[in-house]
Structure formats: structure tokens, C-alpha cells
Amino acid sequence: SEIVVAMYDFQATEAHDLRLERGQEYIILEKNDLHWWRARDKYGSEGYIPSNYVTGKK
């Protein structure tokens, strides 16, 4: 599975969105859409994140 790191904070506005915290790692579950990826955080929460807010883990 692909691990990404959040470059920016993202506040979830929709129920299906996942909040991003800058510097935290997330697991990508689905990339069915170019701009919104389904991800899981370290607490096990899942939701959609803006793909341009994250970068591949170095």
C-alpha cells in the first residue's frame, strides 16, 4: 500500500472527507478520482483527501 505525507492541513467539510494534519502519514486506499483519493489515517479513520495536499513518502 502507498504511504503519503500531508504537506498542508485540510479541514474535512463533508462527512466522507478525512482531515489532514501537516506532516502526518496516510495510507492510500483508492485513487479512482484524480483530485480526491480515499485514505486512512493512523487512528483508522477513512475518507477522501485532496490529492494535491499530499506527497509520496521519501
Score class of each variant (00 low, 15 high):
residue 29 L to C: 05
residue 30 E to T: 08
residue 23 G to R: 02
residue 49 I to C: 04
residue 49 I to A: 00
residue 45 S to D: 13
residue 5 V to N: 03
residue 13 T to H: 12
residue 31 K to M: 07
residue 9 D to E: 06
residue 30 E to N: 10
residue 19 R to P: 14
residue 17 D to E: 15
residue 11 Q to P: 13
residue 19 R to M: 11
residue 10 F to Y: 15
residue 20 L to A: 00
residue 46 E to W: 03
residue 34 L to V: 13
residue 20 L to M: 09
residue 15 A to M: 11
residue 48 Y to D: 02
residue 43 Y to K: 07
residue 40 R to Y: 02
residue 10 F to V: 05
residue 32 N to A: 12
residue 57 K to F: 11
residue 17 D to N: 15
residue 21 E to R: 07
residue 11 Q to G: 09
residue 40 R to L: 09
residue 37 W to P: 00
residue 7 M to I: 14
residue 38 R to N: 04
residue 50 P to S: 02
residue 43 Y to R: 07
residue 47 G to P: 00
residue 34 L to P: 15
residue 28 I to C: 04
residue 42 K to N: 06
residue 2 E to A: 09
residue 20 L to K: 00
residue 10 F to D: 00
residue 2 E to L: 11
residue 52 N to G: 11
residue 40 R to K: 10
residue 32 N to V: 12
residue 21 E to S: 06
residue 52 N to P: 06
residue 13 T to I: 13
residue 23 G to V: 03
residue 15 A to Q: 11
residue 26 Y to Q: 00
residue 53 Y to S: 08
residue 44 G to K: 04
residue 16 H to R: 13
residue 37 W to A: 01
residue 11 Q to W: 13
residue 4 V to I: 03
residue 54 V to H: 02
residue 21 E to Q: 10
residue 41 D to K: 02
residue 51 S to D: 02
residue 36 W to I: 08
residue 14 E to G: 15
residue 9 D to S: 10
residue 33 D to V: 04
residue 50 P to D: 05
residue 37 W to K: 00
residue 18 L to F: 06
residue 10 F to I: 05
residue 3 I to S: 06
residue 27 I to D: 03
residue 58 K to G: 14
residue 31 K to R: 11
residue 17 D to T: 15
residue 25 E to C: 11
residue 49 I to H: 01
residue 47 G to I: 03
residue 36 W to V: 08
residue 2 E to I: 12
residue 43 Y to I: 05
residue 23 G to Y: 06
residue 19 R to T: 15
residue 5 V to F: 09
residue 14 E to C: 15
residue 55 T to A: 10
residue 14 E to P: 03
residue 26 Y to H: 00
residue 24 Q to C: 10
residue 33 D to A: 07
residue 37 W to S: 01
residue 29 L to T: 05
residue 27 I to H: 08
residue 27 I to T: 12
residue 3 I to W: 10
residue 34 L to C: 13
residue 23 G to A: 03
residue 40 R to A: 07
residue 5 V to D: 00
residue 29 L to E: 00
residue 50 P to G: 03
residue 4 V to S: 02
residue 33 D to P: 02
residue 23 G to S: 03
residue 31 K to S: 08
residue 41 D to F: 02
residue 16 H to A: 11
residue 34 L to Q: 13
residue 56 G to T: 15
